[in-house]
Amino acid sequence: MMWQRWWERVRQDPVTLAALVLIMLFFGVACGSWLGLIGGGWSDTSSLLRGGFSAEHWFGTNAIGQDIFQRAVFGTGVAFQVGVSVALGATLLGAVFGSLAGYFHQRAGDGLIGWLMGVIESIPFYLLVAALAFAMQGHNLAMYLAMTLAFWTTTARLVRAETIRLRQMPFVEAARTLGVGQSAILSRHILPNTSHLLLIQFTITFVGAVKAEVVLSFLGLGIQDGVSWGLMIAESTSDLLAGHFSNFLVASISLFLLVMALNLLADAMQDALDPRFSHPADPGPAEPSPAEPSHGT
């Protein structure tokens, strides 16, 4: 019913519809890259250094003659891989800890989880990632782990608040009266009713992860093998000095389009599914989302 309402809104809103189409296009490119259909030649070098647009190299070539289009395509696959895995992990953690904290509201468990969230949110995000990356000795998964660890708390806070509200609703009371166990109440009656929050948070975390990957790869803490939009932007700074802009433009425009489309989708979902935010304010803590170094990190 909720989803029908959402779809009705989307159908009438050309902007959201366009965003949805754009996301599907990017996803198609990502799938093509995963299946090895396109972007397979991202690391092949050619003799054409910093070449312009041509039929052979659609977006030109970089400083060592690699095809920028193929690299951007491969980077799309990486962006989705990072976005989906971090968003899945963080949303799952947020749902579990958030619902537990909410269900055991004002008891020891709630306090403990609240303390843990406060501690994690207090450590500057990039320090956390850098420290974890070095502690894991530059392991490929360090970035994924650090982002998941840093991003689940916002979701948990929202789910906790919703659980506290739902816990007092008559249908939960009824289930309890009928002798339904605590874990069944949580998993069958409370969590399904937070699905709209989880979906919105999944999208927002996806955006955060894609943007953070770019920053981390730029700092040398992100993707270790392969190529990503962040690595393209990092390598493009020397191209810019030589007056060759296409590497930088292709990577940053791809990043912008995907993030913008996901942001628009998240807004539309929030408008339709979460009646309290008829116009969304930041649902998170007082700080901007950890994914965004908005204060100059």
Partner: peptide, 24 residues
């Protein structure tokens, strides 16, 4: 503001350096 939220901090930083502080 939606645009500001969607552009990466790094991209803005590099682009502004290029626009305001380079010979290009």
């Amino acid at each position: 503001s939606g645009t500001g939220m969607s552009i990466s901090f790094i991209v803005v930083m590099i682009a502004f350096q290029l626009v305001f502080a380079s010979s290009y």
